[in-house]
């Protein structure tokens, strides 16, 4: 399965990739400016793109996590729990990321011992445990009602609503660029290349004196941190967190976006997330009852005709064959 969706379809010169990234950034800013109500959707799309970068890392190792939105939920609930006492967004962000990373380390120590279907299902099971806790511990979490995130401050200032939307959008975009560059560097580094080695020849890593589990664990923790960052952004943007964030359909959505966008480049997750959120909005408006069917059809077409995802299609036009 992963063999078809994770192999970089073609190599694109770095300059082409950079150009495409700049074009994408310009397009996102332009869209947010021209169509104000899109700003919220694009902010969420950028946040989800950051979480999907984490899925992409694991896909490179041939592993699929079907429970990764648990880290998104951990980041989001960190914001919801701490905001009353600590309303500073610029502190909540790194805190949410750190706590998600810590959970990632503890959970990772356990799940990196497994591969393939076991890895995927264990992640799913753990995310459902978290979902149940969030749903059942009503006195703490207000169950399925969720928690409203109260008045946030940004560097000590409480901006008006319109400004705040721009600030969140800017934060999401900035962090998307930062983590995009980080993941890009990571994938080209020895640790990133070894990660891809887990998919093809894990035993060789051991016989090079390297622990394959630690290679996977490092990527897992990084992916958990990015999930946490995405969660804090979603919580601060939507101002409301519910257990739904940790539900398996949310995790499935992240994998869906990863496949849709393509795993060949750090741009893939953002292409996928933007396409996913936009198709969802417009399809829901056009045919309210059938939007999931439309999304499903889009994914089916991508898998059948563009196994490299949206990125693969773009790279095919820009690139040269390796």
């Amino acid at each position: 399965m992963s063999g078809t969706v994770t192999a970089p379809a073609r190599r694109v010169a770095p300059i082409g990739e950079a150009l495409l990234a700049l074009l994408g950034i310009a397009a996102v800013i332009l869209a947010a400016w021209a169509v104000p109500w899109l700003k919220f959707i694009l902010t969420v799309a950028l946040a989800k793109g950051i979480a999907v970068l984490g899925i992409l890392l694991l896909l490179r190792a041939g592993q699929v996590s079907f429970g990764h939105s648990m880290f998104l939920a951990i980041g989001a609930y960190t914001v919801a729990f701490l905001a009353p006492a600590l309303p500073e967004a610029l502190l909540l962000l790194p805190l949410g990321a750190a706590i998600a990373g810590l959970f990632g380390l503890v959970i990772g120590l356990f799940v990196v011992r497994y591969r393939d279907i076991f890895f995927g299902m264990l992640n799913l099971a753990l995310s459902m445990v978290l979902y149940s806790l969030l749903e059942k511990l009503y006195s703490l979490t207000k169950g399925t009602d969720g928690i409203r995130v109260s008045g946030l401050r940004f560097a000590g200032i409480t901006p008006d609503l319109a400004t705040q939307e721009w600030v969140m959008f800017g934060l999401a975009l900035g962090l998307a660029i930062l983590f995009g560059l980080l993941v890009r560097a990571y994938l080209g580094s020895p640790m990133g290349r070894a990660l891809a080695g887990i998919k093809t020849r894990e035993t060789r890593l051991e016989f090079m004196g390297v622990s394959a589990r630690r290679v996977l664990l490092a990527a897992y923790v990084l992916s958990a941190v990015m999930g946490g960052v995405a969660g804090t952004l979603v919580a601060m943007t939507s101002r409301h967190v519910t257990p739904q964030l940790a539900y398996w359909t949310s995790s499935g959505e992240l994998v869906f976006i990863a496949v849709l966008g393509g795993a060949g480049s750090a741009l893939g997750p953002f292409l996928g997330a933007a396409a996913f959120e936009l198709v969802r909005v417009y399809a829901a408006a056009a045919v309210a009852d059938a939007w999931q069917m439309i999304l499903g059809a889009v994914l089916l077409l991508v898998i059948l005709f563009a196994p490299g995802g949206l990125w693969g299609m773009l790279a095919g036009r820009l690139g040269r064959r390796p």
Partner: peptide
């Protein structure tokens, strides 16, 4: 190059393998 990198444990996440 991965084998060479493995001698120092691979643990450099940001500088390129090559």
């Amino acid at each position: 190059a991965l084998a060479i990198a493995a001698r120092s444990g691979l643990w450099s996440p940001l500088t390129p393998l090559l």
